[in-house]
Computed example of a mutant assay.
Amino acid sequence: FIGTNHSRSTVQDPYASKIDSAQFTDGWFVDSMPDLNQRHPLLATYLIQNSIWWVEYANLSGIREDTYSYADKQFLSEWARRIMLEYPQFNIVGEEWSPNPLIVSYWQAGKQNKDGYVSHTPAMLDFPLYDAMLKALNDDESWNGGWIGLYEMLSNDHIYANPFNLVTFEGNHDTARIFSLLNEDINLYRMAISYLLTMRGIPQMFYGTEIAMQSPKFRDDGKVRADFPGGWAGDKVNAFTGQGLHATQKSAQQLVKTLLNWRKTATAIHSGKLMHFAPENGTYTYFRYNDKQMVMVVMNKQSEPVTLDLVRFSEVLPHGKTATEVISGKTIKLDKQLTVPARGTLVLDIR
């Protein structure tokens, strides 16, 4: 048994040694997961046909391909090409667990790679933005810390073939629960969820996030993947009915419910453009917009309210508009200034 070295950068590294490159793709992930020889024509054909069979049999709309870059990359290209040829509206999401957008972007369909590699996989999981979001929310604000990390990570979108088709997320079955990673701070949780559901990309939410489920901060698969409360006779807590949920859980559930129901008809979020402004005074502001709708999102990490001069946003925001704050339902006049509550989040629907 020779295990992989997890050196995913070797796929593109112009200085990588052949022995390191080979160990990455040919080494087994763990000793209980033997690699199949995807370079064997008959086995490769079987795997492709088997995937197509499952799509047809189960009427699938998408596949999440685990540990994407660990497979033979020529096989991955042909596997995805054949599936997308049969089902042009299908989606495949690759998991490339790297905080480096240069590594993730290599595998998305449409990317013009320097080595000529062609991918046919439409989407990748946006681990770089996930990592940047957690760090931005947890770190203190400074000229090179806090929001600026998230702002600058988003600016890397120019290297993706289609950043709007990346899958964004707040956590998954392999990560600690986001509410715990944010030190059980409901205000930071509101920022994270609001960001996820208004930012570019296809949002993915792990079960239980909507009631702020908790876990150890270090990886513990058993506790991260704990039972969702409710649905069985005798359950004392039932998140389906609200029975037994405490105030924080109810607040989290209401936030998610409100944003998701609003999002159903928010065309600016579905297909609108994106413009963001450099973080200032502990706040981060961005806009999603199209011909029918404009959405302004402002997050304030300061422990006191911050008043923004709206002239700064005149490039995208017309003067004198009226907005509905989605989370609270309040009406806000966007005249000269906008006050953002302490440690508050505003999602403003401007029509």
Rank of each mutant, 00 (worst) to 15 (best):
P88L: 05
F287Y: 11
A239G: 05
Q337F: 14
L137I: 08
Y70M: 15
Q254T: 12
K111F: 06
S328V: 09
G272L: 01
D157I: 05
R64P: 01
V295N: 02
I19W: 15
T25M: 07
L85D: 14
F24E: 02
S180E: 06
A233R: 13
S180Y: 07
W232F: 14
S215F: 06
S51D: 12
Y117M: 03
V311T: 14
A58S: 11
N172S: 13
M296Q: 07
N91D: 08
G110S: 10
T175N: 09
R39H: 07
L245N: 03
M199W: 06
D115P: 05
W28D: 13
S155V: 00
A239E: 01
L129K: 11
K73V: 10
S314N: 11
D115C: 10
T345M: 04
D227K: 15
P279R: 06
D126G: 02
D309F: 02
F277H: 09
R343T: 09
W79L: 00
G145H: 08
E210M: 11
G149Q: 12
L274F: 15
N300W: 04
R82L: 06
E184R: 15
P99W: 01
T345G: 04
A123M: 15
V256K: 04
H6T: 11
I2G: 11
N172R: 07
A233H: 12
D13H: 08
L181P: 00
T258R: 03
M124L: 15
I48L: 02
W232I: 14
I327M: 08
R288D: 06
D349L: 02
T168K: 10
G208L: 04
W53V: 06
M84F: 04
M199N: 14
K257C: 12
F206H: 10
L317Y: 04
D26G: 03
A44Y: 02
L334S: 03
S142R: 11
E315M: 08
N113T: 02
K114V: 14
A132L: 04
P34R: 13
Y68S: 00
A252C: 08
T322V: 14
I63M: 08
Q302P: 02
E210S: 11
A109S: 13
L36E: 10
L47R: 04
H40C: 15
R64G: 03
A266P: 07
L338S: 05
A233Y: 13
F90D: 01
A323Y: 03
S17P: 01
D291V: 09
A71I: 03
F29K: 06
F90M: 10
E325L: 05
P279I: 06
A252L: 07
T168P: 03
N172G: 13
D185W: 03
F228Q: 01
L310T: 09
W107D: 00
W232P: 00
G149N: 12
T175Y: 02
Y160L: 03
G222D: 12
L348D: 05
T331E: 14
A109Q: 12
I186E: 08
N162Q: 14
R219P: 01
G344Q: 02
D291K: 14
D115W: 09
D126L: 01
V224G: 00
N290R: 04
